[in-house]
């Protein structure tokens, strides 16, 4: 690609929502150092937002949680917003989520009225200027890296986008094959596989698949606390503290069910009666207090298959975006770009 030089853009944030932060897909290979990977709670929405503007999946973007978020760019920019359904306007005109959007210079973008889930992701074609810790822009508030955005803040963006005109419509219609999750059901169904203590907890299978649970108020990136029936394992001695995976269903001593999130404390000694499948983690990352959910048991094989399918759809989207952007002269991050950020090293 005859890549244009990067242009320095300033994004002036006028309203910051309840809690908006810099974000990305999280830290790699950080957990043996005692630092949880962290990163976007809804990794599917975050990765898709970046793909839609031609970025690498792991590029820095913004995670917006609730309230009204508004900003104005100094130059033309190319963005996408994904995540839970919300109202998005550019210069007062409604634009779709889950599609690339052209924003003219000095035009206000407003994201508000999120429904269903709890997080929106806002990606910009180019590189956001943000601090990084262990190679990642993801917040790690326990270690003094909150990455929180405030009204009045100016955020830098280095972008190769130079505007895109479509002769007949204000916004281009790309018709990209975007896998958009369905946040509309009243009760979400989350798929789980056996955990190490499932067999020691008679009745837990029927209980989790036959009951409805409600996400409690003290839920965050560390974990979702669910109200609903629990059963404690039988005949277990003290469990020696061990590493815990994202999505583990812990039953502490009280009658509570906790599903661990990406910023979990890495070790614990509570029984784990189920583990959410990797493919269902993005949905859990959208669950807000009051959200009702139930669970469906699947085999390890089915869990991997579901994840493979999600990834296949993202790869297909990525390929379409690259072909299209190459054809119309929009910038996109090539695998072979030299300035590979630290986040993309093969594991």
């Amino acid at each position: 690609m005859a890549a244009k030089p990067e242009q320095a853009v300033t994004l002036s944030i006028s309203e910051a929502g309840w809690l908006s932060t810099f974000q990305d897909l999280g830290r790699e290979d950080s957990e043996f150092m005692g630092v949880p990977c962290g990163g976007a709670a809804d990794q599917h929405s975050a990765a898709t937002a970046n793909i839609l503007v031609g970025n690498r999946r792991g590029a820095a973007l913004l995670e917006i949680m609730g309230g009204r978020f508004a900003f104005t760019p100094s130059h033309d920019i190319f963005i996408s917003i994904t995540g839970t359904p919300a109202e998005v306007t550019v210069g007062g005109v409604p634009v779709p989520l889950w599609q690339p959007v052209c924003v003219p210079a000095r035009t206000k973008v407003v994201i508000s009225k999120a429904t269903g889930g709890m997080r929106n992701y806002l990606a910009f074609s180019g590189d956001l200027d943000t601090p990084r810790f262990m190679g990642s822009a993801a917040p790690e508030s326990r270690m003094g890296f909150p990455q929180r955005l405030a009204a009045g803040q100016q955020v830098g963006l280095a972008s190769r986008y130079r505007g895109f005109s479509q002769p007949y419509l204000g916004q281009p219609l790309f018709r990209l094959p975007v896998p958009v999750p369905d946040f509309s059901p009243d009760v979400w169904t989350v798929e789980v596989v056996d955990g190490p203590e499932t067999d020691r907890t008679p009745g837990i299978r029927e209980l989790l698949s036959g009951s409805t649970y409600t996400v409690g108020g003290k839920s965050d990136h560390v974990g979702l606390r669910l109200d609903g029936p629990v059963i404690h394992p039988e005949g277990l001695g003290e469990i020696v503290s061990h590493g815990v995976p994202i999505g583990a269903f812990e039953i502490p001593h009280g009658d509570e069910l906790i599903i661990l999130g990406r910023s979990r404390t890495l070790t614990a000694g509570y029984p784990i009666v189920a583990v959410a499948t990797k493919a269902s983690l993005p949905l859990l990352g959208q669950a807000s207090p009051g959200r009702k959910m139930t669970f469906r048991w699947v085999s390890q094989e089915a869990a991997v298959e579901r994840w493979r399918e999600q990834q296949r759809l993202l790869c297909a989207l990525e390929e379409r975006v690259h072909n299209l952007f190459a054809a119309v002269g929009l910038p996109f991050a090539d695998e072979t770009d030299s300035e590979t950020p630290p986040g993309t090293r093969a594991a």
């Binding site: 957990e31 043996f32 990977c37 020696v240 815990v244 070790t267």
Partner: peptide, 10 residues
């Protein structure tokens, strides 16, 4: 990723 426990490794 690796997570060390007292007597285990995740």
């Amino acid at each position: 990723n690796l997570v060390a426990g007292a007597e285990s490794l995740l």
